[in-house]
Deep mutational scan, measured.
Amino acid sequence: IRKQWHEDITQDLRNHLVHKLVQAIFPTPDPAALKDRRMENLVAYARKVEGDMYESANNRAEYYHLLAEKIYKIQKELEEKRRT
């Protein structure tokens, strides 16, 4: 379902936000690492998460909020795993 606010969101912005999700899960300073085949699954997962939020959000603010919440949860989980 195409929503009115979707018209304001460019593909570049969506790609940028997918990249932010990927960085939250696997922070790497090396952009070449993103071309690694093992990263493809991670990028696919991040695209799916972003797509789900894009579809479920009712406006741009909610879209950003859902993504920020997801990134926060991912970082929290990773922190907890590092501690144990």
Rank of each mutant, 00 (worst) to 15 (best):
Y54Q: 02
D36E: 12
R83T: 12
H16R: 14
V18G: 08
R83N: 10
A33D: 10
R83V: 15
R2N: 13
A46G: 01
A33S: 11
Q23C: 07
E77I: 07
K81M: 06
T10F: 02
Q11I: 03
T28H: 04
E80H: 05
H6W: 04
V18M: 01
T28N: 14
E55C: 06
Q75I: 13
E80G: 11
Y64R: 09
E55M: 07
L66Q: 05
W5E: 11
L78H: 14
E7W: 02
L42E: 06
N58A: 09
E40V: 07
T10K: 10
L66F: 10
K73E: 13
R38M: 06
Q11P: 10
R14K: 00
A24H: 02
R14N: 05
P31C: 12
A68S: 14
A46W: 03
S56V: 12
R14I: 00
R47M: 03
E7G: 09
Y54V: 03
W5D: 07
K81Y: 02
L17H: 15
E7K: 11
K81F: 04
T28Y: 07
N41V: 03
E50Q: 07
D12W: 03
E69D: 12
A32M: 12
P27C: 09
L13K: 05
P31N: 14
H16T: 10
E77T: 13
L34I: 15
E69L: 04
K3S: 09
R82P: 11
H65I: 01
E62D: 01
G51C: 13
F26D: 15
M53P: 02
L78W: 14
H19K: 12
Q23R: 10
E69N: 08
A32C: 11
P31F: 13
H16A: 13
Q4K: 13
K70D: 01
L21Q: 02
V43P: 05
E50C: 03
T84I: 10
G51R: 13
D36H: 09
D30G: 10
N41W: 05
D8F: 06
E62Q: 03
A61M: 10
I71V: 09
L17T: 15
G51P: 02
E40T: 11
P29Q: 12
R38C: 12
E62M: 02
A68P: 04
Y63Q: 01
K35E: 12
R82K: 14
R14Q: 00
D52W: 02
Q75R: 13
L34V: 10
Y45E: 07
E77G: 11
I1W: 02
Y54A: 00
V18T: 07
K35Y: 08
K70G: 05
V22Q: 10
N59M: 00
I9Q: 00
I25M: 15
V49M: 13
R47W: 02
K76T: 12
A46F: 02
F26C: 15
A61G: 08
L66A: 08
L21P: 04
P27D: 10
D52F: 12
E50A: 01
K73A: 12
